[in-house]
Computed example of a mutant assay.
Amino acid sequence: MLLTISGLPGSGTTTVSRLLSEKHGLEMISAGEVFRSLAKEYDMTLAEFGELAESDDSIDLKIDERQKEIANTRDNIILEGRLAGHMAEKALKVWIKASVDVRVGRIVARESGSFEYKLSETIEREASESVRYKTIYDIDINDLSVYDIVIDSEKWDQFQITDIISCAIDNNSYF
């Protein structure tokens, strides 16, 4: 089984992926964690690293090629990342959404800092990623047509979302 979980920062993708991983015994591969660890290795903020990635396609390509390779060679995994649904051919593809204000509130709770600063950083990061995805892959991140399930994390908490996706997993013979 291959499951992809995608969404913008703060939407709940990592939390839901971890819960699904535990519930179904699936390994979780997170593009966001790879990106954050690379930013730390470069001793940069996410915004700074995003700027670098805008001028150096190899950063996104490394992360995304790794996800493609994993998706095509391994079973029983969850690929969690913004483009995971585009990187896997045969998978149950999920997009988790929430408004920018709710997402930034979650980011502030997770990382601390002021709401205004994190809002500005999030908007800048998303704009940077949008440009890179369009330039590198010709992917419009706002086009959700590749996803089997689009779910709003403002309406359901992480446990309810996990249950909804689990129902789809249990009743889907596609993968």
Rank of each mutant, 00 (worst) to 15 (best):
M1T: 06
T4V: 03
L8V: 10
S11Q: 02
S11T: 12
L20W: 00
S21G: 15
K23N: 10
K23W: 02
L26I: 00
L26Q: 01
E27F: 07
M28P: 00
S30P: 04
S30N: 12
A31E: 11
A31H: 03
G32Y: 05
E33Y: 12
R36V: 09
R36P: 08
R36Q: 11
R36D: 10
R36G: 11
L38H: 04
A39R: 03
A39S: 15
K40I: 10
K40D: 14
M44W: 05
T45K: 05
T45W: 12
L46Q: 07
L46E: 13
E48I: 11
F49Y: 14
F49P: 02
F49C: 09
L52F: 12
D56R: 10
D56Q: 10
S58F: 06
D60Q: 09
D60G: 04
D60I: 05
L61C: 07
L61R: 15
L61S: 07
K62A: 13
K62Q: 13
I63Y: 05
I63V: 13
D64H: 08
D64W: 05
E65R: 12
R66E: 12
Q67N: 08
Q67Y: 01
E69I: 13
E69A: 12
A71Y: 00
N72V: 04
N76C: 06
I77Q: 02
I78M: 03
I78W: 00
E80F: 04
G85I: 05
A88D: 03
E89K: 15
K90M: 04
K90S: 08
A91W: 00
A91N: 03
A91E: 02
L92K: 01
K93N: 06
V94P: 01
V94W: 04
W95K: 08
V100D: 09
D101I: 05
V102K: 13
R103W: 03
R103F: 02
V104I: 08
V104M: 03
V104S: 04
R106N: 08
R106Q: 07
A109I: 09
R110P: 09
R110I: 04
E116F: 10
E116W: 10
Y117C: 07
S120L: 11
S120Y: 14
E121F: 00
T122F: 03
I123Q: 15
I123S: 14
E124Q: 15
R125E: 13
R125Q: 12
R125M: 13
S128C: 14
E129Q: 15
R132V: 13
R132W: 01
K134F: 13
Y137Q: 06
I139G: 01
D140C: 09
D140Q: 06
N142M: 09
L144T: 09
S145T: 14
V146C: 10
Y147H: 11
I149G: 00
V150I: 14
I151Q: 02
I151E: 01
S153Q: 03
S153D: 05
K155Q: 14
W156Y: 15
W156S: 11
F159G: 03
I161Q: 04
D163K: 10
D163Y: 07
I164A: 09
S166D: 12
C167D: 15
I169M: 08
I169D: 04
I169L: 13
D170R: 08
S173W: 12
F175E: 14
F175I: 14
